[in-house]
Design a protein around this nucleic acid. Structure first.
Lengths: 243, 243
DNA sequence: TGAAACATATTGTATGACAAATAGCGATAA
DNA sequence: TTATCGCTATTTGTCATACAATATGTTTCA
């Protein structure tokens, strides 16, 4: 029906990026299963009508993200998904293409529920003045958003991402990165609810606890915030996200 | 003094991997700071005496891991560390080279404390029979290790890693990967303590809770386990890991 | 003053050749 | 028959060179 089902790789982008996208989606979708070997480079090249240079750079990207391994004569094989960098923005994007929304939103929520209270508590201890100003301004942007849904969502995402960065623990940062793209959809869903007054209060509680350097209070406030966010999404989508 | 200070890149490995390692360490160490642009490819090539092909494949890997961005004429720039894939095994390895041990162990512990109880609880709900068998056999290997430190450490690492995989939530898996390399050092430290009887009991508690599908019990047992593990490491190293 | 055309540096792509590694086969010997 | 060694062929890895595409800065012109 649709000749161009998904404009995932606009022609403007570099060739090796488009190819990596194409292969990445195919792998994530399961066209090539774990342990399987891809066709040899030469064959892949003529299949797509590109040079080996571009193809190898595309493969090199996928190898770096843990999707593939290669060795001479053995070929290029798909690794077990346990080795993939699932928090990588590209891989996440490919997953979103092929996984149903509810499933991946639910899984991300499970991770958030584990990490965000801890991140808030760490931020309360480790945040610099600059971090506090950033959180303050993210929060202010939420307040100022008014009825503008788009602005609200951006500010909301920025606020949560800033919490992760304020931990000054780089192992938390990849999770914070999810607030740039992977969680936008969830926030857009939640933004349609008429719960903004309550959301502002709850975000304010987290902000205050961090600014006043009270880790346990920050932890508690984040737990409350996420709990209610869950309820909102559940309510709006009509599914139970936590069986 | 020492001509080969660190055997990070044995000559056996592929050239582009050695180069990526070298550049990766240099970037992580701060030789090239965030926002800075690297020398042009041509120059990098003649600096190291290699072809542009190999150099570009090395750069492509670093770009895929979020360390670099490149565009024509603008050159190749170092990205803000917030965009790096800090859970990636390679990046972790490079960090270990240049960061003091206590700092990165402490930060990893902070992440574990947040995620591992949640992972155990999820595993109690989502684990398949195969997952349960795996955990069982990891645990048995710990018991069977006897006085063999190396076996104990391997089994211990495997047990914790298996918990993350048993969540069937792929966003937890990159954290579980840390138990393959990044946390070995910590486990080796803890293994020197004479607390094995207690450790076996505590690991057994987590295992039983997961097998009997009791999430809140698994959560609690994991909290206890990590709490004591922290004490052990603190005791042995003589530092306070949590200020 | 401003905008548009042009020169230039740098990354991106193509091509063709050769090197290195390794799985699989075959030959050889015990 | 069985095990070991070595050969061959396939596939990835590296090299050299040329040209294309893109963004920057400068120069020219209205």
């Amino acid at each position: 029906m649709d000749a161009t089902p998904r404009p995932l790789a606009p022609a403007s982008l570099k060739l090796h990026i488009r190819v990596a996208d194409q292969l990445g989606v195919a792998i994530v979708r399961g066209d090539y299963k774990a342990g399987e070997t891809l066709p040899p480079e030469s064959q892949l090249c003529e299949m797509l009508g590109i040079s080996r240079t571009a193809m190898r750079e595309a493969l090199r990207s996928l190898i770096a993200k843990g999707l593939l391994v290669s060795s001479p004569k053995r070929g290029t094989r798909v690794r077990d998904p346990r080795h993939w960098s699932h928090l990588d923005p590209d891989i996440l994007r490919w997953r979103v293409e092929v996984t149903d929304t509810d499933t991946y939103l639910k899984k991300m929520f499970e991770l958030r529920r584990a990490t965000e209270p801890a991140a808030a508590a760490l931020a309360a201890v480790a945040a610099t003045d600059e971090d506090r100003l950033q959180l303050q301004s993210d929060f202010q942007a939420m307040v100022d958003a008014g009825a503008d849904n788009a602005r609200w969502v951006e500010a909301d995402l920025a606020f949560h991402r800033s919490i992760y960065f304020a931990t000054h623990n780089e192992f938390f940062w990849p999770i914070g990165q999810l607030f740039s793209f992977g969680l936008r959809q969830m926030f857009e869903i939640a933004a349609r609810g008429d719960h903004r007054p309550r959301a502002i209060i709850e975000h304010g509680d987290v902000l205050r606890a961090i600014i006043e350097r009270k880790p346990s209070m920050a932890h508690a406030a984040a737990v409350t915030l996420i709990g209610n966010a869950t309820s909102d999404v559940v309510l709006i989508r009509g599914h139970d996200l936590e069986p």
